[in-house]
Measured scan of single mutants.
Amino acid sequence: RMRTAFTSTQLLELEREFSSNMYLSRLRRIEIATYLNLSEKQVKIWFQNRRVKHKK
């Protein structure tokens, strides 16, 4: 599987969303994925990984 290289714009938006809410509803995940031109799965995994990073 290929590793996703997020653009700086995508990362900025993902981080902004994360700062306001660490957990996404499915609807919000779809909205963000569509807006950032990513798959729902990519957004889901990014949030999972970001939560782990946040815990450390």
Rank of each mutant, 00 (worst) to 15 (best):
40 E>C: 04
35 Y>M: 13
54 H>C: 09
2 M>H: 08
29 R>N: 09
38 L>E: 04
38 L>T: 10
23 Y>T: 10
47 F>C: 04
20 S>F: 10
47 F>W: 15
50 R>M: 10
16 R>Y: 06
35 Y>R: 08
43 V>D: 02
46 W>T: 02
41 K>R: 12
33 A>P: 00
24 L>A: 08
55 K>G: 11
3 R>G: 14
44 K>N: 14
17 E>A: 07
44 K>I: 14
51 R>W: 14
27 L>F: 15
14 L>M: 07
26 R>P: 15
15 E>G: 00
43 V>M: 00
30 I>R: 05
5 A>H: 14
10 Q>A: 06
43 V>H: 00
40 E>P: 05
18 F>A: 03
26 R>H: 15
26 R>C: 15
39 S>F: 04
46 W>M: 02
43 V>E: 01
13 E>Q: 07
6 F>M: 13
39 S>I: 02
29 R>G: 06
15 E>M: 00
22 M>G: 08
16 R>Q: 11
50 R>A: 13
28 R>L: 03
24 L>G: 02
14 L>N: 02
5 A>K: 08
37 N>L: 05
17 E>I: 04
40 E>G: 01
7 T>S: 09
55 K>A: 12
52 V>W: 09
11 L>F: 05
41 K>L: 15
54 H>V: 07
24 L>H: 07
44 K>V: 15
53 K>V: 13
17 E>R: 01
28 R>D: 02
32 I>Q: 02
52 V>Y: 13
16 R>F: 04
34 T>G: 05
52 V>K: 14
3 R>W: 13
22 M>Y: 09
17 E>N: 01
16 R>D: 10
44 K>S: 14
42 Q>E: 14
51 R>I: 14
21 N>C: 09
21 N>E: 05
14 L>Y: 00
22 M>C: 13
40 E>I: 05
39 S>V: 04
18 F>I: 03
51 R>V: 13
10 Q>F: 04
11 L>P: 00
33 A>W: 03
6 F>Q: 01
16 R>K: 12
49 N>S: 12
24 L>D: 07
54 H>E: 14
20 S>C: 08
20 S>Q: 14
42 Q>I: 09
6 F>Y: 11
7 T>A: 05
12 L>T: 13
3 R>V: 15
43 V>T: 01
32 I>H: 03
48 Q>V: 08
33 A>E: 01
47 F>S: 03
8 S>F: 06
48 Q>M: 07
15 E>Y: 00
46 W>L: 03
14 L>E: 01
3 R>A: 15
55 K>P: 09
11 L>A: 12
54 H>W: 10
13 E>F: 06
28 R>P: 00
17 E>G: 03
44 K>F: 15
51 R>K: 12
44 K>Y: 15
49 N>C: 08
40 E>S: 03
13 E>C: 06
5 A>T: 14
27 L>W: 08
3 R>E: 15
9 T>P: 09
28 R>Q: 02
21 N>Q: 05
23 Y>K: 08
32 I>K: 04
2 M>A: 09
54 H>A: 11
42 Q>S: 11
14 L>A: 00
46 W>V: 01
7 T>V: 00
47 F>E: 00
42 Q>R: 07
9 T>A: 14
31 E>F: 02
22 M>P: 14
22 M>F: 06
23 Y>R: 06
54 H>S: 09
38 L>Q: 02
7 T>C: 03
6 F>C: 07
13 E>L: 06
41 K>M: 14
16 R>P: 05
49 N>D: 10
55 K>M: 12
31 E>D: 05
16 R>W: 05
20 S>R: 06
14 L>S: 01
18 F>T: 00
44 K>H: 15
38 L>M: 10
24 L>W: 00
55 K>N: 12
45 I>E: 15
25 S>E: 03
4 T>A: 12
4 T>M: 13
1 R>A: 09
19 S>I: 11
19 S>V: 12
16 R>C: 06
24 L>K: 05
24 L>R: 00
19 S>P: 04
55 K>E: 13
35 Y>V: 10
30 I>K: 04
45 I>R: 10
17 E>Y: 03
39 S>H: 07
42 Q>F: 00
10 Q>H: 02
21 N>Y: 05
15 E>N: 02
16 R>M: 08
50 R>S: 06
38 L>C: 12
3 R>M: 14
41 K>P: 15
3 R>P: 13
48 Q>G: 06
27 L>E: 08
33 A>C: 04
9 T>D: 14
44 K>W: 15
17 E>K: 03
47 F>T: 01
8 S>D: 13
55 K>Y: 13
37 N>W: 04
46 W>R: 02
33 A>M: 05
28 R>A: 01
22 M>T: 10
28 R>M: 00
30 I>F: 04
12 L>E: 15
13 E>V: 07
36 L>F: 03
38 L>F: 02
23 Y>Q: 09
38 L>G: 02
8 S>Y: 06
20 S>D: 15
43 V>C: 02
32 I>M: 05
20 S>E: 14
27 L>Y: 15
47 F>M: 02
37 N>Y: 05
27 L>S: 08
36 L>S: 03
37 N>V: 04
25 S>I: 00
50 R>C: 07
39 S>Y: 04
2 M>Q: 11
1 R>I: 13
41 K>C: 15
10 Q>D: 05
54 H>K: 06
31 E>I: 06
29 R>C: 08
13 E>D: 08
1 R>M: 13
36 L>Q: 00
19 S>R: 08
28 R>C: 04
16 R>H: 09
35 Y>E: 07
17 E>F: 05
27 L>K: 09
26 R>L: 15
47 F>H: 02
25 S>R: 05
8 S>C: 11
49 N>M: 12
53 K>Y: 11
21 N>F: 03
35 Y>W: 07
5 A>E: 14
37 N>D: 11
29 R>A: 09
37 N>I: 03
33 A>Y: 00
29 R>Y: 04
52 V>E: 13
27 L>H: 09
29 R>M: 06
10 Q>I: 03
6 F>I: 09
35 Y>L: 12
23 Y>P: 10
6 F>N: 00
10 Q>E: 08
13 E>Y: 10
24 L>Y: 03
52 V>D: 10
38 L>W: 02
39 S>W: 04
40 E>H: 04
12 L>G: 12
37 N>E: 08
37 N>S: 10
40 E>F: 04
50 R>W: 01
42 Q>D: 14
36 L>D: 04
29 R>F: 01
52 V>N: 12
16 R>T: 09
14 L>D: 02
15 E>H: 01
51 R>L: 15
31 E>M: 01
7 T>P: 03
53 K>G: 12
36 L>I: 06
46 W>C: 04
28 R>S: 00
23 Y>G: 05
13 E>R: 01
43 V>S: 01
41 K>A: 15
44 K>D: 14
42 Q>T: 11
20 S>V: 07
11 L>T: 09
30 I>E: 05
38 L>S: 05
11 L>N: 06
12 L>I: 13
18 F>G: 01
16 R>L: 06
18 F>V: 02
50 R>K: 14
9 T>Y: 10
34 T>Y: 05
6 F>A: 06
11 L>S: 09
45 I>N: 13
41 K>S: 15
32 I>T: 04
25 S>G: 12
52 V>T: 10
21 N>M: 01
13 E>M: 05
1 R>K: 14
52 V>P: 05
18 F>W: 13
6 F>H: 08
23 Y>L: 09
5 A>P: 10
23 Y>M: 08
49 N>R: 07
48 Q>S: 14
47 F>Y: 02
27 L>P: 07
34 T>L: 06
19 S>L: 12
6 F>E: 06
39 S>L: 04
14 L>Q: 00
19 S>K: 10
51 R>Q: 10
53 K>D: 13
37 N>G: 12
40 E>T: 05
51 R>P: 00
14 L>R: 01
38 L>I: 10
14 L>P: 01
